[in-house]
Write a protein that binds this DNA or RNA. Structure first.
Lengths: 348, 348
DNA sequence: GAAAACTGCTAATACGTATTAGCTGTTAAT
DNA sequence: ATTAACAGCTAATACGTATTAGCAGTTTTC
């Protein structure tokens, strides 16, 4: 079965009574070369191509020319499983859109890695199939990133990345500025005791939020509580907030915020009357919680689009790529209000 | 920039003091050939490969061997844009999972086509980059399908497809049986006047539902109403149902069902007390409506997995592929109840 | 009327790997 | 002592395209 007797340029050439080279030239010769092939011959070749339905083998094309019009997409976690789907889908949406626009195909590097541990440079690294690669994931392997940089492989990261022996080309969201903005808003609403609920891990996205958070402390606000373990019981976190005297709590994870809000409601506390809550980032799927949290919007689709465009530019002009941070617009929501006049009463 | 001085087997060969052929054999020679290379030499070559970080160029590999370990994924609509995302994501989830398991990468054929009109066989058809292809979409181009079949290109469709000059290998959901099951349930609950709200288009998925629906008519149930235009005003559809005397309405589109249920509620009618509603297929995103409709589950992930497995099998064994329909389990829901004893009263 | 320019093509080669046939030197069989 | 078998490699080629150098014949130039 599957007996592809694939047509080649040689077949076309014989049918048209020319050489393989002529067929190739007719298909995609430089204008100067084309000018030397009379219209009659060109039409004859084209006619054969039409009737046979010949299409050039992209693999052979890549062999000869070096380029492919394929963009690799490497995700450090599986892209689609539902837990991740909401995270990756908006990126992929933007990537696909821009790829289609630029007439590139996408190669999802899914096979790489042993077990669940995905690696870019695995034993059989398939990166080179693509002309370049987009890298995304919650947390990167810095050694791999460093290798991409030193090898000068054309790639673009989605999300800001620290230098690794050289600048990493990326398109990220400006979490630091957006976080700072929300803190300033809280302070201007009278809050001076702030809580930060989230980890301090090494990931850039976490670092940026923390930086944005602490950068304005001292100018009216101060840190009353820092819970760095996520997924603690909601009641415990709530207790911490209340007893610390914090009047505004900043959450890294929407999930934590949802749970704490529910716990507060259960205790008869209401947000933002009794205390304010802010989520540092987009609600990935807002529909799940009825509460519209004050937060900021991460322009994931746009990140995907711009990263793709940057990558294509890197490939086509052999340039080095740059570093772009996109603004994350604040989302007003309904969980940030003025500082309660008598916060102590909350404890009753 | 991007000065890849890509390592080749020739470089490795020189460094190890052997020939290019030996390097290739060390990497993936048949056992019989490998047996003739002493461990010492193999280790020497492996060592060079290790230290240099050489990886074979998959393109050249494909050139020489004909296979790639890449599966193409062709979608007739963009896969990710949010309207489609909920439709395609479960399929892709299954596909990605199985692809990773079988150690294949996925090539998303996004570039093909002119404007929004995607085509498999466009002027520069990139299908051949992959070893085979999965084809998905709400509606297929039968001519393209026929061409895939006659060219004996290894592909598998997701969703049942009619023969097109030959059997089409597919993994689909058994909508016909699942629909029949729901109709039988309604009949056994005393319903005899049934409404069908949905188109009759040429798409197989629509045909199958309609077949399942009509196949049991006459044996206790009969068609009281058939609204074939979708997206009509909900009130109008509701009027039709009520005035036709139908006591159970079957919907192709969840969206229509949601709207009609809302309209009914507004008029003081309740489901399933006043009339029953059934949706023929999975709620793609159940969360949006509070009502849990009686329907059946389309095992999209499993379809993706099995289609991928079938495709890999087709590729690796050069077999022809088969046709598989997966069972769609009924979802009980809360919108199918006994036939109201005095349906006329509903009109009041 | 010889050189130059141009026209219409083709031969040859590169791309990087897989694979087969086969070469050279050694050991085993008869 | 000759042949046969085998060990340890390598040369050569195929895969399908893109591209450059250049050939043979015709036309232009001065």
């Amino acid at each position: 079965m599957t007996g592809h007797k694939r047509l080649t340029q040689n077949d076309i050439a014989k049918l048209a009574g020319v050489s393989q080279a002529t067929v190739s030239l007719v298909l995609n010769g430089a204008p100067t070369a084309l000018a030397r092939i009379p219209a009659e011959t060109r039409e004859r070749v084209q006619a054969v191509i039409q009737t046979t339905g010949y299409v050039a083998d992209p693999i052979a094309r890549r062999m000869a020319k070096g380029l492919n019009r394929i963009l690799g997409v490497f995700t450090y976690e599986p892209a689609f499983p539902s837990a991740q789907a909401d995270f990756f889908t908006p990126f992929l949406l933007g990537i696909e859109e821009e790829a289609q626009h630029q007439n590139y195909d996408l190669l999802l590097l899914t096979s790489a890695g042993v077990g669940n541990n995905r690696k870019i440079f695995s034993e059989n690294n398939r990166l080179r199939i693509a002309d370049g690669c987009l890298v995304l994931g919650r947390e990167f392997d810095r050694k791999e990133l460093a290798r991409l940089v030193t090898e000068d492989y054309p790639f673009v990261a989605i999300g800001r990345r620290d230098d690794v022996g050289g600048p990493v080309p990326y398109v990220g969201g400006d979490y630091e500025a957006a976080t700072r903005h929300l803190v300033e808003m809280a302070v201007s609403l009278g809050h001076s005791q702030l809580a930060y609920i989230g980890p301090e891990g090494p990931a850039e996205s976490i670092v940026d939020r923390w930086r944005g958070f602490v950068s304005t402390l001292g100018e009216g606000g101060e840190l009353a509580l820092h819970v760095d373990a996520v997924n603690r019981p909601a009641g415990e976190i709530l207790d911490g907030i209340v007893s610390s005297g914090a009047t505004a709590a900043f959450f890294i994870e929407l999930a934590d915020a949802v749970r704490v809000e529910a716990a507060a409601r259960e205790r008869g506390l209401s947000v933002p009357q009794d205390f304010s809550m802010v989520v540092l980032g987009s609600h990935i799927r807002a529909g799940r919680s009825p509460v519209r949290f004050t937060s900021y919007d991460i322009p994931r689709e746009e990140m995907g689009r711009q990263a793709t465009a940057m990558l294509v530019n890197r490939i086509e002009t052999a340039s080095a790529g740059s570093q772009i941070l996109l603004t994350c617009e604040p989302v007003e929501g309904e969980t940030l209000g003025p500082c309660p006049s008598n916060p102590a009463k909350r404890a009753q």
